[in-house]
């Protein structure tokens, strides 16, 4: 079927089986490789994207539901040349190790900050539930608080 949506601000129409997970459309059809495959069952969060501003695990989101939606991936997180506050904080805290899960965490964090501009540790524990095997959670928590600071200072 034909599916039309906006991805990172650009209109796209693709031809795909509507039941294909959106993740594979993003990765293999649109060639945006920053969104990762981890488990295929929405259990790890490596594939987290934004659909109309909501954090969504794209491995378990059928492409047909993307019709008419605004989709953002890690490639579209920053606007123009300036880094998104989350990415800026991630750099300041030198968060990534292997880096594979990090786009998913950054997308989840960016969505969290839209809802809760100053998340407490409890908010972070409750909302950031992706999996990182390298164990960067400690730096990530610092980076999430730092991202909130940057974002609030920019307003």
């Amino acid at each position: 079927m034909k599916i039309s949506f906006y991805i990172n601000g650009n209109a796209h129409s693709i031809e795909a089986d509507g039941n294909t997970p959106l993740l594979w459309v993003i990765r293999d059809v649109l060639d945006l490789k920053g969104t990762k495959f981890g488990c295929g069952k929405a259990a790890c969060g490596a594939c987290t994207i934004h659909v109309d501003g909501e954090a969504v695990r794209s491995c378990s989101y059928s492409a047909k539901f993307a019709e008419g939606k605004n989709i953002t991936t890690i490639e579209g997180l920053s606007a123009g040349d300036s880094l998104h506050p989350v990415q800026q904080a991630w750099i300041e805290e030198v968060v990534p190790q292997c880096g594979y899960c990090q786009p998913g965490f950054m997308m989840a964090t960016a969505a969290l900050l839209e809802k809760i501009p100053n998340p407490t540790d409890q908010d972070i524990d409750d909302n950031i539930v992706n999996i990182c095997r390298c164990g960067t959670y400690y730096r990530m928590r610092k980076a999430i608080h730092r991202a909130a600071e940057i974002k609030n200072a920019n307003i």
Partner: peptide, 19 residues
């Protein structure tokens, strides 16, 4: 020194085996 792969990994631009 900050990691040399930091900027790419934060941009989601690093190419892993699966990419």
């Amino acid at each position: 020194i900050p990691r040399v792969d930091l900027a790419d990994k934060v941009a989601g631009a690093s190419i892993f085996g699966m990419d």
